[in-house]
Design a protein around this nucleic acid. Structure first.
Lengths: 245, 245
DNA sequence: TTGGTACGGTACGGTACAGTACCGCGCCCT
DNA sequence: AGGGCGCGGTACTGTACCGTACCGTACCAA
């Protein structure tokens, strides 16, 4: 039916790995996990190069032969270390996700002044999101969503959820300070802010439509302009003529 | 090196197709273009099924055998009619692009009242963009951007450019009416509007993060809320405290 | 009727890849 | 020093697919 390489792969290596040292048969050549420091170094080298190649070309277009040709070593080693191509891919994606999500989860917003705090927040968030590796990872997740739907979903929603929560908490306080209008729920304001400031540039960059953004000054400009418009619409006292029950 | 099936394909069929009926040699079995009405019907059936399968699974994961298995006929016919798998793909994508871009290019905005006109515009635009087939096409373009960068680029930029132009023209008039603030360039306001109202939902839908949007009432809600915030920030008289030279 | 044409079915050639088996070398530990 | 283990290199097996060649058949026109 469909191409979908995976259909050819046997379920080996993980269905009957009850014992390693017992060796009831001769020697099934089932090498143990990484032990040697040299092995660990090779493992890291494989991961590093595989990461680069997967990010650049996607899962299907990278063959283990090509990887071996770049980083050296033998195919056998890849299978023993990662359990196959998918295992390698999962290792790569796992590392990348952690690397991508951490700085976003650690973002904070200064309490005041509101405008500068928001601009700064948007600036740092945009910088995280528009990082070339981050963009490549997200393209990879979109392209390979059918292969790992859970992870693909998680990486986007966790990032967005986290940011939205941080921002909504900050907005609640600004609302009680009387700085931001209180007639809109903080979650909606947070999402609007993200949409205004982040998502446009994000989508353009994902698609590759952007000419040369992701330069720090461009990011600063996007953050500043978006924040201004948002504050004008969200500050206390706005909404006199445009809201209806 | 890399998988990239295309590297195996010869350049045939389009490099030396000077004459069809001349047949200086015996019979190279180069069948003519579609002539029979039955042939046309089969051609359309092939396009239709190929479109569905490409949209669902992407280029690489659809084999001509699978297509033939679904729609009947022989592989030979596909090669004679479309000149190979890539020709078939281009035909599919070409049809889809036209179908996708036309309603967007035909969008218009009522002159007034501003709020309702914007909401209505956003509503119709969102409806176009969030159409399941449109989303599938865009995912396909993202996934296959390396195969047809020109088309992939064009479909996004033409849509965005067109919308931005329409909107900017409308904004200019509202600015001269004194309804919208005139201290910001209309293009910037137009892009901000698109970001607020369209892009967030668009990106979420592309990624598949959205739970059940693209229902008409959801789209209406997104359009309404986004437009309200935009108008509050963009209407004349806003920006008293947040802009700086 | 007869010849040609359009088309379906099958087989073939060629390529690429995943995963496995086997051989042999060098290093480390005992 | 010696044996085992880790590991690289190569060959092999099996699968999938693209593109083409060949053959047989149904249908249409002269």
């Amino acid at each position: 039916m469909l191409n979908e390489r995976r259909s050819r792969w046997p379920k080996a290596l993980h269905d009957h790995d009850q014992a390693i040292g017992s060796s009831t048969r001769s020697k099934p050549r089932m090498r143990a996990a990484v032990s040697t420091p040299a092995g660990e170094a090779r493992r890291r080298a494989l991961l590093k190069k595989a990461e680069e190649m997967f990010l650049m070309h996607g899962f299907d277009s990278v063959s283990i032969d090509a990887l071996i040709g770049e980083v050296g070593g033998s195919r056998r080693n890849v299978y023993d270390t990662f359990g196959g191509k998918e295992g390698l891919f999962e290792g790569v994606v796992s590392n990348l996700c952690e690397e991508y999500v951490r700085p976003i989860a650690e973002l904070e917003i200064a309490a005041s002044p509101a405008r500068e705090a928001l601009i700064d927040f948007a600036d740092r968030l945009l910088t995280c999101v528009l990082e070339p590796r981050a963009l490549a990872l997200q393209r990879l997740m979109i392209a390979e969503a059918h292969r790992m739907p859970r992870v693909s979903h998680a990486i986007f929603s966790s990032g967005h959820q986290r940011v939205s929560t941080i921002l909504a908490a900050w907005i609640v306080e600004r609302q009680s300070d009387g700085i931001l209008r209180a007639d809109l729920p903080p979650e909606e304001l947070a999402d609007s802010f993200i949409n205004i400031v982040i998502t446009g540039a994000h989508l353009k960059a994902l698609i590759g439509l952007t000419s040369r953004s992701s330069e720090p000054e461009d990011i600063r400009g996007i953050a500043t302009r978006g924040t201004c418009l948002f504050i004008d619409g969200a500050q206390s006292g706005a909404g006199k003529a445009s809201r209806e029950p």
